[in-house]
């Protein structure tokens, strides 16, 4: 026996720690950019959850048309952000509108990722005809501009929350599949994957337990970016009149409804615009900060 045993224990080594797999999550605070992004998103999440309690008026109730910001309502309460052309309180509509976007955007993104990651894992790990077929389908879907795809689907099947989720899933999952596939191709030749196969792990376990966690960093960054993009998409559809049917508030729709009046009453479009931009900015900042934390890892 060599004397190796004792000396290794005596070596200077970093202290053991737990939960390092997603170590960068703990370090979000280290990145100013990511922290600001996260705070913006949390702000909107709180607004969406507490909408019934914090919104001063019912969102669809016509009270006093064309009121400017700060004007008092008949009951004495203040229209902090004014009212729209139908007399509905803009602040309340923005607050309730955050619910629409914060339900459908994460839902659609989650669906896209489930499908995109599954397809990407299969294509990258199994290769062969599965890869070929999935890649060709991806090419095909990506040949349609995203908005054209949405327009076709929604004009064909009608505007509803579910259809928006379906359309976004169809349009986004190919890109996620490509990203995942690339990551898997880089990881599948690692020795620890071979080691798992050599001890007889089934393919699904190799893909999900051995490979996927190692690809999580870039995927999570992409998810943040994509959330912002889906927020834009939902807003765009509302803006084009293809969003959720009225009268329920939806930020894009609010801009479209009132842009005719922007010349005289800029507040009607300005505040919904700021709402969308701030939420998208939140996701973009978070993604940017995470990207640095993940690459540092």
């Amino acid at each position: 026996m060599s004397a190796a045993g004792a000396e290794i224990a005596a070596e200077v080594l970093p202290p053991p720690s737990r939960g390092l797999r997603f170590g960068w999550i703990r370090r979000i605070g280290h990145s100013k950019v990511a922290t600001i992004g996260l705070l913006i998103i949390l702000f909107w999440a709180v607004v969406a959850v507490t909408a019934p309690w914090i919104s001063p008026f019912p969102p669809n109730l016509p009270i006093r048309p064309m009121a400017s910001a700060g004007v008092r309502a008949p009951n004495g309460a203040v229209f902090w952000l004014g009212t729209d052309h139908l007399g509905r309180d803009i602040l309340s509509r923005i607050i309730w509108g955050s619910r629409t976007v914060l339900v459908y955007a994460p839902l659609a993104t989650a669906c896209s990722f489930v499908i995109g990651i599954t397809a990407g894992l299969l294509a990258g790990f199994k290769r062969g005809w599965i890869d070929e077929a999935l890649s060709r389908i991806t090419d095909l879907v990506l040949a349609f501009p995203a908005l054209v795809l949405y327009i076709i689907i929604i004009s064909k099947f009608g505007a509803s929350g579910i259809n928006i989720v379906l359309a976004v899933t169809l349009a986004s999952s190919p890109a996620i599949m490509r990203l995942t596939r690339g990551l898997v191709l880089a990881l599948r030749t690692r020795a620890f994957v071979a080691a798992a196969q050599l001890r007889g792990e089934p393919a699904w376990r190799v893909m999900v337990v051995e490979i996927l966690p190692n690809a999580s960093g870039p995927l999570i960054v992409d998810a943040c970016l994509r959330l912002g993009y889906v927020v834009i998409t939902i807003g765009t559809l509302g803006f084009l009149g293809l969003g959720l049917p009225p009268p329920d508030p939806d930020w894009g729709g609010m801009i479209n409804d009132t842009r005719k009046f922007a010349l005289v009453f800029p507040h009607m479009v300005l505040f919904p615009c700021l709402a969308v931009c701030s939420l998208v900015l939140g996701f973009n900042l978070l993604a940017d900060g995470l990207r640095e934390l993940v690459t540092e890892d």
Binding site: G228, I232, G235, T236, F239, G252, I255, N256, R259, A262, L263, P266, V269, L270, C273, V276, C277, V280, L281, N284, L285, D288
Partner: peptide, 26 residues
Amino acid sequence: ISVLCIVTTSIPPFASTVLISAIFVF
């Protein structure tokens, strides 16, 4: 440049049309 880029990419076209119209047109 990074800050400029991240802010401008956060303004979707439907909002930027409104905003730049507000400035240059109205």
